[in-house]
Each structure stands twice: as C-alpha cells, then as structure tokens.
Amino acid sequence: MSRLPRLAGVTAAVLALGLLTTAPAAGGEPTVSDPRVVAHFDFAKGQTPENIALEPDGSADLTFFFARKVVNVTREGIKRSIATLPAVANPDTPVIGAAVVTGIARAYDGTLYVNYATGTRKTGIWRIARDGSAPRQIAKLPSDGFPNGLALDERRGVLYSADSVRGTVWRVPIKDGKPEAWATGPELEPGTGPDAAGVGVNGLRFHHNAVWVSNSDAGTLLRIPVRENGSAGAIRTKATGLTGIDDFGFAERHRDTVLAALVTANQVVRVRPNGTHAVVLTGDDGLSNPTAVAVRGRTAYVTSAAYFTQEDPNLLLARVHQRARG
C-alpha cells in the first residue's frame, strides 16, 4: 500500500513553527531574482525532493524522500535516475514510520553519500559509487534515530550527519564508518512544548571549518566550529525566529550569508551574518514547501517537496547577485 496518503500528516510531525523577523535589504549584500522552475515532479509517486548536491556541470543530484531515490536533474530540467535505496520490510522510522532518503553529499571524485532513515539496521549512511553499482551501507546509525542533513569534510575524510530526534551531530570517518556522537546539547534537541514537532537538528552544511545546522523545533541556525583536533567547539546561535527552517546554503561570494528554506512558511529567506533575515522567494515564485537550498556561483537551486500543498514538487533556479551600495 502506498504511504503517500499519509504525507501531510507525517511531514507535519517533522517540522517546527516559529516567528519570522525581517529587515530591509542592505547595500552590498546578495539579492535573489529571476526565479524559474526547471523541473516538475510527481507527488503521487513519492517524488518529493528533500536535499541537493551539485555536480561540476551545474546539474543537481536530488534525494526523493518517500520514493527512496536519487536522481540527477540538469539546468534544462532533464531527469536521470541514479540509484534507488533498498526497500525495508516493516520500516519503523521515528516520527515518520516510512523508510526515507534525506541528506546527500558529493565527494570530489563523484561518489555520493546519502542518509537513509528506516527504523531498522539499514538506518545509516549509504555510498553510491560512480560505476552504477548498487548503493552500499558504509555506516550504521541508531535505528531509533532520524539521520537528516549530511555534509562531507573531504580534507579530514569525515561525514557529519544530523540526527533530528536524538539531538546529535554524528561524525563518521569514511574509511571505517564508525560513528561518534560529535556534538550534543540542548541547542540541538527537539522541542518539548505543545507546538513542537519532535524534530531538532535538521539541515547541515560544512562551511569554513565549521558545521552549521538548523533546528526545526527551535527555528534557529547554529554554528559549531571544528577544532584542530577534530572535536566540536562551542555551539553558537547565529539566527533565531526562522519559521519551519529545513536545509540551507551559503551565498558563495558572501562569507556567512545564508539562503534558508522555510518549508512551513513556503519561503526562502536571506539570513545575514548578524542574524537578521528577509524573505527573497515565496510561493508566487514557484515554491511549494521548499526543503533545501544550494548555491553555485550566481545560481541558487531550491527544492520544493510539496509536503503540505501536495501540488507541484519541483526544482527552482534563481539568480544570486550583489546589490550595489547606494
């Protein structure tokens, strides 16, 4: 039986509510314009794009949350299947119930790594090689956890995985796949109030020798520095009041400026280094519950999974450029 009729209910449980504060655009900061949807997907088939990794040719590798697939989409919208994660008998993923593919990271040699949450021993990080062979599990993570955002520090040879229900960032060496609870703390944990969805740390990016994460229940963006010995530094809050924050990307020409997907608010916001933020894309631009943002040069890629609208999951591209100082 298809799990798709449950989409609205289960996704409501994995997202948090908060307050959105905005501020006028300042001179010299990045702006987003010319949004265009380049690919549409089939919601009824579970083609709900959750996360993004970019290829050197400008195409995007996307995870399909409920379909358990990884697909490549060109800038012109041409789609190609890359891999399907194996089906799991009686999945029991916390919060969701279904087996789902979440975060994705790409190595320089083209190897892809994805998080697979199942509620079974198959929960963990899986490798997708360039040779077309079947995906292979390289790390087991707790079956009662929910691995979500994923990033690769290739210099150190480690992956970082955000566990949304255990409030943990796992550090996993690629060579041996042995996970270490790298960062924990109340800033990463799910909320406990009446409006909490039970989902804490969610999106994750490795940026300028730090692990940046979002906390969906708290509506926060956090930075965790990586010390010289590889251990986690103190967790610092970079922004608050981000409604339903999921994953995010960095505007490359602006050191710590973030473009974040607010899935419940149906918006993408620009988060400045000082923590203030402003809306740059909305449903009028083609968003349909955005889940992730990636930036390459002057192009922003935004996935929309349509978890709540249940209409038009898609991939949107937009131009990122610098506003002239007045």
Rank of each mutant, 00 (worst) to 15 (best):
K140A: 12
Y108M: 10
V114L: 07
S143M: 13
G124E: 09
G119A: 08
L152V: 01
R106Q: 10
S133E: 12
T123E: 02
G149D: 06
A151L: 03
V88C: 05
V100C: 08
N115Q: 14
I128F: 04
S133H: 08
P94Y: 10
A139T: 10
K122H: 06
A117Q: 11
P147L: 08
Q137L: 10
A98R: 09
P142I: 14
A139K: 01
T118Q: 05
V114D: 01
A98S: 13
A89W: 05
L159G: 00
P91D: 13
G149Y: 09
T123Q: 02
P147D: 14
K140P: 00
A105P: 00
G145R: 10
L152F: 09
F146T: 13
T123L: 05
N90R: 15
E154V: 02
L112A: 03
G124D: 08
N148S: 13
L152R: 02
G149F: 07
R121P: 01
I104V: 11
A89G: 15
I104Q: 04
K140W: 00
G119Y: 12
A99I: 10
D153P: 03
G124F: 04
R136A: 12
I96E: 14
G145H: 11
A139S: 11
A117S: 14
T111E: 14
L150V: 04
Y108I: 06
R127M: 07
Y113T: 02
V88H: 11
P135Q: 05
I96G: 01
I128R: 00
A134M: 05
N90T: 15
N90I: 13
G103R: 04
A99P: 03
T120Y: 13
G145T: 13
N90K: 13
R130S: 14
T123K: 09
G157F: 02
